[in-house]
Amino acid sequence: MLRAVVTQVGEAFTVHVSTVPPTTPPAQETSTSESETVHDANTTVNSDGVVAKDGEIGHTTKELAAPGPNPIVPEVKEVIWGAGAFIVFALIMRYLAFPKLKKGMDARYSGIRSDHEQADATRLAAQSDVAEYQAQVASAKADAAAHLDQARQELEAKRTARIATANAAIAEMRAAATAENDSARAAVQSQIQGAVAEVSSSAITLAIGKAPDAAVVSRVVDEVMSAGAAR
């Protein structure tokens, strides 16, 4: 029968394992050390595998490699190292790294933004240039159209003038021809009248034996001829 007594000195644990007669109930010591292990996890360790082998009697001391408190309980050295590391890191970030990085980012972003604005301005200028050019083109086109109109009008005027003169000439010639025609017709008519009057008067003379009044004959011939012409 083995009896184990665990004692703690600082970080080191000493385990005394000894044989005891089986008659004595040895539970007292071990149970107290266990309750320490369970409740006061800060300072005690589970004694892992330190129970001596059968027959190995006496005094064994072993430094344990991995035992530790319950993992729920923080270890002071880890808290200190973690806290120190984080605080240093946070201060470096706050006062050195982040402001510089952020300044660079802001500078670049504002640069990009101003570039954008510049590009916008350039584009606007180009657009106004284009508008101006288009206006010029339009005015040139209008000029050309005006010139064209003018030339066309001049041509038109010339053409109408020529046509008018030609028409006038034609009308003149036609009037002359008409007048000639009329005079010829009048001459022929007077000749015919004279002849008809002569023939009629001679016929009447033959018929009644007496020469009719020349004035009456000419009046009657006139009437008949104009009636015939009117018919």
Binding site: M1, L2, R3, A4, A27, S31, E34, V51
Partner: peptide
């Protein structure tokens, strides 16, 4: 756990803690 039970087994009785 294991170590505790070793110790307790060594003690040879079944305590309330166990």
């Amino acid at each position: 756990m294991e170590a505790m039970s070793h110790l307790v087994n060594a003690a040879g009785t079944s305590t309330p803690t166990e």
